[in-house]
Nucleic acid binder design. Structure first.
Length: 774
DNA sequence: GTGCATCATTTTTTT
DNA sequence: AATGATGCAC
C-alpha cells in the first residue's frame, strides 16, 4: 500500500495531490492546458483502488477511444490490474443499450448508423414530404437540425424555436425516428439519448447500474451535451462520487451540442462538491514564429522546410505536429511532405468511410440486422445485379404493403413468389442475393475474419473490383479482413478474462460483468468499427509527423507545433451565409469565441516551439482569393507577450530562459524566412500582378509588414490594376480583348466585370487576372 | 439497366 | 477541385 501510495503521489504539486487524495464525494477538477490533468485523473483512479475500491465499481468516461486507451494504459501501469470500465460515452451507451435493448423495444442486433446512413434516411423523408423544393430544407440542413434537437432536448419538450425547426419537427423528425426504429437502427445521438430514456423510464434498470458504479469520472466535462450531462446525473446521484474534469477555456464543441454550462453549474448540482484548480502550468512555449507565404502550396513547403530544419537540429519527426482548421487543408500539406517527410494524416475520409469498405460493412450489417433497409439499399445492386431504380421501387412498394423490411420481402416462400414476378435478369440477381445472405448466415459466428472473408468472396465484391482494376479498393477490402482478424485476436472468446478484484456482494454486480467487454461476434466487430474515431490511428511511438485538425489536437501535446492557415475566414472560419435562420449577432459572437478557444487549444499543444503560418492567397471553393491575416494573430501574440515579456520583439520570445543560443537561432530563422519570402516575391512578381496596398491595419509586426509589402509589390512595367476604370479597353492572355463594365470591391479583392469580345462577360479578380490596359 | 457526359454544389469542426 | 446528381444515348 505504501509503495503504491508513493507511486500515486510522486511528482505532484499541492493542488494535484489534493485532487488525487479526494476519494469520496463530488469533485470538480478545473484544469488548464498542460496542468497534468490526465496524470491526476489516472493517479486518482489508482488511489481509489489502493484505498479499497474495487475496479468494477469505477466508471471513467472520456470523449475519445484514444483518451480511454491512454488512461487504461496508465492505470494498469500504476495498479497493475484491469477491470475499471474505461470507455467513451458512446461505447458505454452502446454496451448498455445492447444489454437492455428489449426494454426499449429494440433487438440486441441493432445497427449503429453513421452520418452518411442517417443522411440517406433523411434524404428519403425530405423527398417524400416534398420539402426539397425549398433549398433550406436540404437533407443536410434537416439532418443537422434533427441532430441539434436530439442533443439539446430529451423528449421533444423544450423544442428549439423558429419556423425552420417547427416545420422540420412537425414532420421530418417523427418520420425519421420512426424510420430508425423500423430499421432497428440508432444514430450517434440516439446512443446517448436512448440511454437516458432507458434510465429515466426504467428506474429498476437504473438502480442496477447505479449500484454497480460507486465512482464515476468524466473527462473533458465542458464538452458534455445535455444527454451526457443527464447520464452523469442519473448514474451519479446515488453515491455522489462524481469526479468531473475540464476546462471551460477549451470548450470547442458547442456546435455539436456541448454546453459549457454543465461544468459551470457543477457546484449547483453538487453543493457539497470539492473544487480543485490545478495550477495553470502554461506550457512554456520557448519560441514563436509567424510565417507568411504567398499561397497555400508555398505555405506547405515552408512548413516542410522548417520541419526538416528541426529534424536536422536533432528533433524527431514524432515531436512535430501540424494543425489546420479544415480537413481540406491537409491536401497541400500532404503534397509538400510526401517525398521528404514521413507523416500521417489523422481524420478526413477514414478507412471505414471508404465506399468499398462501407459496402462490405453493409453486407455484414444486413447479416446481423435483417431489418436494416439502409444497408439493403446500399448493396442490393453492388456489385451489379441488374437491380436498378425501377426494380428497387417495386420491392419498396411491396414492403410498404406488408410492412416488412426490404430483405424480408424477398425472403421465404412468399419472397420467392414475389421475386418470380420480376424480369429474368433482376430475378436472377435477387435470388442470388437472398441465397448469398442465407449462406452467410449459416456460417459459425466466430471467428469474424472468416465471415468477412467468405462474404467478400461469395458476394463477388472483391472480384468485381479486381476486374475493374481498382486495386487500391481491393487492398482496402483486404485491410478489412485484417481488421477483423485483429478483432478476433483481441476478443478471443476462449480467453475471456474475469474481472479482477474480489467478487461483488449480491445484487451489486447483477450480471453486468460482461458489459465492459466487447462481444466476440460480428455484432461486436461492427460496433467497434462504427464507434472508431480517426484519432485512434495516432501513435506517439511512431516516427512520423502528425497532421490533424485543431479539434483533433485537443488532449495531445508536442514539442513542436505548426498551426497553418491563420487567416481571416479560415481561422476564424467564416460561414458563407447559413441556409436557415439568420444568425443573430449574439450567435455570431459566440461562434467567434469558440474559434478563439480553438486557437488557444492549438497553441497550448506546443511544449517548446510554435509556428503560426498563413498564406496570402488561399483557394476556397476552387477559386483563389486574397486572405487577410487572422485577427487572432495580433491578439494572440500580444497576449503571449504579456505573459512573458512585452518589450521583446515577437521572435525573441522565450530568450529569457534559453539565453544567447536561442537568440541566434531565432535571428537565423528570421533571416532565412525573409530570404524565402523574397524569393517568392520574385517568382510571383513576374507572374502575377497584385495591387500594392496595405492589407490590414491590424498587422502590427513591422518586419512582417515589410515582408508582405515586398511580396505584394507590383513589378515594373506592369499595369496598375487599380488604375482601371469603367469603359477601359483591356487585354487578357486567355480571353483576348474586352471592355471593363464594372468595378466592385476594394483593395486586394477588387473585381472587374469585363465584357470580352470572344467569350462574353467575366468577373475577374484584379489582383490575379493578367489584365493589360490597352 | 448501364454507362457516360455535363452540371451543380460544396466544406467546418466529430462521436 | 472534386464529388455527386441529373440527363441522355445505347
Amino acid at each position: 500500500m505504501n509503495e503504491t501510495e508513493e507511486r500515486v503521489f510522486a511528482d505532484l504539486n499541492p493542488p494535484q495531490r489534493e485532487a488525487v487524495a479526494t476519494l469520496e464525494g463530488p469533485l470538480l477538477i478545473l484544469a488548464g492546458a498542460g496542468s497534468g490533468k490526465t496524470r491526476v485523473v489516472t493517479r486518482r483512479i489508482a488511489n481509489l483502488i489502493a484505498h479499497g475500491a474495487r475496479p468494477w465499481e469505477i466508471l471513467a468516461i472520456t470523449f475519445t477511444n484514444k483518451a480511454a486507451a491512454e488512461m487504461r494504459r496508465r492505470v494498469e501501469d500504476l495498479v497493475g490490474q484491469a477491470g475499471v470500465w474505461l470507455s467513451t460515452f458512446h461505447s458505454f451507451c452502446a454496451r448498455v443499450l445492447r444489454r437492455e435493448a428489449e426494454v426499449l423495444g429494440y433487438t440486441r442486433d441493432f445497427t449503429i448508423y453513421d452520418e452518411e446512413d442517417s443522411l440517406s434516411l433523411v434524404k428519403d423523408i425530405v423527398k417524400r414530404l416534398g420539402l426539397e423544393e425549398d433549398k433550406r430544407f436540404s437533407a443536410r440542413n434537416v439532418r443537422q437540425a434533427i441532430s441539434r434537437t436530439k442533443n439539446s432536448t430529451l423528449r421533444g419538450d423544450e423544442l428549439p424555436q423558429g419556423l425552420f425547426h417547427e416545420r422540420v419537427l412537425s414532420g421530418v423528425f417523427e418520420e425519421y425516428e420512426a424510420a430508425l426504429r423500423k430499421n432497428q437502427g440508432l444514430d450517434f445521438d440516439d446512443l446517448l439519448r436512448q440511454a437516458v430514456v432507458l434510465f429515466t423510464d426504467h428506474p429498476d434498470v437504473l438502480e442496477r447500474y447505479r449500484n454497480r458504479f460507486r465512482y464515476v469520472l468524466v473527462d473533458e466535462y465542458q464538452d458534455t451535451n445535455r444527454c451526457q450531462y443527464h447520464l452523469i446525473q442519473l448514474l451519479g446521484q446515488k453515491h455522489r462520487n462524481v469526479c468531473a474534469t475540464g476546462d471551460p477555456d477549451q470548450s470547442i464543441y458547442a456546435w455539436r451540442g456541448a454546453d459549457v454550462r454543465n461544468i459551470l453549474s457543477f457546484e449547483k448540482d453538487f453543493p457539497e462538491a470539492k473544487i480543485v484548480k490545478l495550477e495553470q502550468n502554461y506550457r512554456s512555449t520557448q519560441h514563436i514564429l509567424q510565417t507568411v507565404a504567398a499561397d497555400e502550396q508555398l505555405e506547405a513547403y515552408e512548413v516542410a522546410r522548417h520541419i526538416e530544419e528541426q529534424v536536422r537540429a536533432g528533433r524527431r519527426y514524432s515531436d512535430i505536429a501540424v494543425f489546420y482548421r479544415t480537413n481540406a487543408q491537409s491536401r497541400a500539406l500532404e503534397e509538400a511532405l510526401k517525398n521528404n517527410v514521413p507523416h500521417i494524416i489523422i481524420g478526413g475520409v477514414t478507412f471505414y468511410e471508404r465506399r468499398e469498405v462501407k459496402d462490405a460493412l453493409a453486407y455484414l450489417r444486413l447479416l446481423v440486422n435483417p431489418k436494416d433497409d439502409v444497408s439493403f439499399r446500399r448493396i442490393i445492386n453492388v456489385p451489379r445485379r441488374a437491380v436498378g431504380d425501377s426494380a428497387l421501387a417495386l420491392i419498396e412498394q411491396q414492403a410498404l404493403k406488408t410492412g416488412a423490411s426490404l430483405l424480408a420481402t424477398l425472403s421465404g416462400p412468399e419472397g420467392a413468389a414475389f421475386i418470380a414476378t420480376f424480369k429474368p435478369k433482376p430475378r436472377q440477381g435477387l435470388t442470388g442475393f437472398v441465397g448469398l445472405l442465407e449462406e452467410l448466415r449459416a456460417l459459425p459466428p466466430y471467428p469474424v475474419a472468416d465471415i468477412v472473408k467468405t462474404m467478400l468472396e461469395r458476394s463477388e465484391l472483391r472480384e468485381s473490383l479486381v476486374e475493374s482494376g481498382e486495386m487500391e479498393r481491393v487492398e482496402n477490402l483486404d485491410g478489412l479482413v485484417n481488421a477483423a482478424a485483429e478483432f478476433d485476436e483481441e476478443n478471443d472468446p476462449a480467453a475471456v478474462r474475469a474481472p479482477e478484484g474480489p467478487p461483488p456482494e449480491p445484487g451489486a454486480y447483477d450480471g453486468l460483468e460482461e458489459l465492459s467487454q466487447r462481444q466476440a461476434s460480428l455484432a461486436g466487430f461492427l460496433e467497434k468499427v462504427a464507434l472508431m474515431a480517426p484519432t485512434d490511428k495516432y501513435d506517439p511511438e511512431k516516427e512520423y509527423v502528425t497532421l490533424m485538425t485543431l479539434h483533433m489536437a485537443k488532449g495531445l501535446e508536442f514539442p513542436v507545433v505548426f498551426i497553418t492557415g491563420v487567416e481571416e475566414g479560415l481561422l476564424p472560419l467564416l460561414r458563407s451565409g447559413g441556409p436557415f435562420e439568420d444568425r443573430s449577432s449574439e450567435q455570431e459572437a459566440k461562434a467567434l469565441e469558440e474559434e478563439r478557444r480553438l486557437v488557444y487549444v492549438g497553441m497550448t499543444r506546443a511544449k517548446e516551439k510554435l509556428y503560426l503560418s498563413r498564406a496570402v492567397y488561399r483557394r476556397r471553393y476552387g477559386a483563389a482569393d486574397i486572405a487577410q491575416p487572422s485577427r487572432f494573430l495580433s491578439e494572440i501574440t500580444e497576449k503571449l507577450l504579456e505573459i512573458h515579456d512585452r518589450s521583446k520583439p515577437l521572435w525573441a520570445e522565450g530568450l529569457g530562459r534559453a539565453g544567447r543560443g536561442a537568440r541566434e537561432t531565432a535571428e537565423r530563422e528570421v533571416k532565412a524566412f525573409g530570404r524565402f519570402e523574397r524569393e517568392v516575391a520574385e517568382v510571383f512578381g513576374n507572374e502575377q500582378k497584385v495591387p500594392p496596398r496595405r492589407t490590414s491595419s491590424r498587422r502590427r509586426d513591422p518586419a512582417l509588414e515589410e515582408v508582405v509589402d515586398r511580396l505584394l509589390d507590383t513589378s515594373e512595367g506592369q499595369t496598375e490594376p487599380s488604375m482601371l476604370d469603367v469603359g477601359d479597353r483591356v487585354h487578357h492572355p486567355k480571353f483576348g480583348d474586352g471592355t471593363v463594365e464594372a468595378i466592385t470591391g476594394t483593395g486586394l479583392s477588387t473585381k472587374a466585370k469585363v465584357h470580352f469580345r470572344k467569350c462574353g462577360p467575366k468577373l475577374l479578380l484584379l489582383s490575379l487576372a493578367k489584365l493589360e490596359k490597352l
